[in-house]
Simulated scan of single mutants.
Amino acid sequence: MRDDLDHLISRLADARPDRSLDGFEHVVLQGVARRRDDIQAARALAPIRVASIGVALAIGVTTGGMAAASTLTQPPQISPFSTVAHLAPSTLLEGE
């Protein structure tokens, strides 16, 4: 079952190609051109991407800052599960 490597290579050289290579170079060059166009488009859109990230960051910081400021100005809510409630069951069980 062991075949000699030289014999296998000579059989491969004698065999006909299983597909035609006509137009192969043209297809490869089209792919290269398409890739080049994609890279140029990405470079052209890079400033827009950076600007959109900056806008998203500014919106997030502004919204987060406003939410933090609004929680500091509101009086604490008394709820059974709140840690600031003096009559919460957890504080009554401590025995202090």
Rank of each mutant, 00 (worst) to 15 (best):
M1D: 09
M1R: 08
R2V: 01
D4A: 02
D4H: 08
L5W: 02
L5P: 00
L5Y: 00
L5V: 01
D6S: 02
D6A: 05
H7Q: 11
L8S: 04
L8W: 03
S10E: 10
S10Q: 09
R11H: 06
R11K: 13
A13G: 06
A13R: 10
D14R: 08
D14I: 00
D14A: 08
R16T: 12
R16G: 10
D18M: 14
D18H: 13
D18Q: 15
R19N: 07
R19E: 12
R19H: 14
R19I: 08
S20G: 11
S20R: 10
L21F: 14
L21H: 14
L21A: 15
D22G: 11
D22L: 15
G23F: 02
G23Q: 07
F24H: 13
E25D: 12
E25N: 13
V27C: 08
V27K: 13
V28K: 09
L29T: 09
L29S: 12
Q30I: 04
Q30N: 12
Q30F: 04
G31L: 12
G31P: 03
V32P: 02
A33D: 03
A33V: 03
R34P: 02
R34H: 14
R34E: 15
R35T: 13
R35W: 11
R35D: 12
D37T: 01
D38F: 06
I39C: 03
A41S: 00
A42S: 07
R43W: 02
R43N: 02
A44N: 03
A44R: 11
A46K: 08
P47G: 07
I48D: 14
I48A: 15
R49D: 11
V50S: 14
V50K: 15
V50H: 13
V50F: 10
A51Y: 13
S52A: 15
I53M: 10
I53H: 05
I53K: 05
G54A: 12
V55F: 05
L57V: 04
L57S: 08
A58S: 13
A58H: 07
A58L: 14
V61G: 04
V61E: 05
V61I: 12
V61K: 12
T62M: 07
T62A: 13
G64D: 00
G65N: 05
G65V: 02
M66K: 05
M66D: 01
A68F: 04
A68R: 05
A68Q: 02
A69E: 03
S70Q: 07
S70A: 10
T71A: 04
L72Y: 09
T73G: 04
T73K: 07
T73N: 11
Q74N: 04
Q74F: 02
Q74P: 01
Q74R: 10
P75S: 09
P76A: 09
P76H: 03
P76Y: 00
Q77L: 13
Q77R: 11
I78S: 14
P80C: 08
F81M: 12
F81H: 10
F81Q: 15
S82E: 08
H86Q: 15
S90V: 11
L92T: 13
L93D: 05
L93K: 09
E94M: 10
E94P: 01
G95D: 02
E96F: 04
